[in-house]
Design a protein around this nucleic acid. Structure first.
Lengths: 155, 155
DNA sequence: TACAGTTGCTTGCGACCACAAGTATATCTC
DNA sequence: GAGATATACTTGTGGTCGCAAGCAACTGTA
């Protein structure tokens, strides 16, 4: 490894990554907030829950899955619970653990939001990349966190 | 284009993109703050200025180059000015315009921060990708904003 | 010159999120 | 089983940043 002098490729990729993320998320987030009153993190949380067994997850696992701290997930879920889209459930075997459960209303909210949000994402990506390139991106990104990926549709 | 049903590739790439960005920036940013008292945006601004002619840029152009709003760049530069790393300069021909100018102290600060920050970036990327893959990433990312890229070393 | 529209910048406000500290519960060690 | 440690979660605090509104300066039209 170099250490002292960063390769041109690494830095060029990193700067583009930062700029691309800032530009895309600002666009997508403001659209999502305007259309549905959800932030992108709200949406991602609803999506994770919708794809989890019994549509519920431990809060701590949910936090890790969307890269938020425990305090972050508490505040985020506060909002979703206030809207009735998520509920708490206790864990019989461990009183420390609280589950976040997607309600029917939350499922419906996600379904509505997905209609425009997926189209927004599609518009930003499909115009710039071929199917093959998207596959390459998905593979390379996947290495950043060793993430698993599921179907993209809610439900 | 699809519009209604998002392709698997698009969504898989997007979700990995979000997770990767969150994980990487949280790591790099906390390191940079702990080591040098700079946020990643602070660093990026200092770097842009260091590579600009006469080490100065119009504030509005600086904001666009790091994807911040005008209010965002005002607050950010407030901090850098308070530390003496950046100064304001007026534009002779247009009193609306203010330049942000990198001071010698700011240049030195950037040099010090770059030592550890570039190594941090290198560590995160070089371990996961080959040189060829980094080139691919840089090219694909570059299309997100049509950005131009300069040398990665400050000065 | 007068007036409308645009541009650059700042400020008030609110949202989001991380960190640190605190509480409650569980587990491990003796 | 008592005490130390670890885990899950919440809350107080502070920082960053976007949006809307406002101000100052420039430009265009007549």
């Amino acid at each position: 490894m170099s250490g002292q002098v960063l390769s041109y490729q690494v830095h060029a990729a990193w700067v583009s990554f930062l700029r691309g993320h800032a530009a895309l998320t600002r666009d997508l987030n403001s659209q999502l907030v305007a259309d549905h009153g959800l932030t992108m993190n709200d949406y991602e949380v609803l999506l994770r829950l919708s794809r989890a067994p019994d549509r519920q997850m431990k809060r701590i696992e949910l936090a890790q899955s969307v890269v938020l701290t425990p305090s972050g997930i508490t505040r985020l879920l506060d909002g979703l619970e206030a809207e009735g889209w998520v509920e708490k459930a206790s864990c019989p075997g461990d009183a420390r653990i609280t589950y976040a459960v997607l309600t029917d209303a939350g499922r419906e909210k996600l379904r509505q939001a997905a209609e425009t949000h997926l189209a927004d994402i599609d518009r930003l990506f499909s115009g710039r990349y071929s199917t093959e390139e998207l596959g390459t991106l998905a593979e390379l990104f996947g290495r950043l966190d060793g993430a698993e990926h599921g179907d993209c549709s809610p439900g």
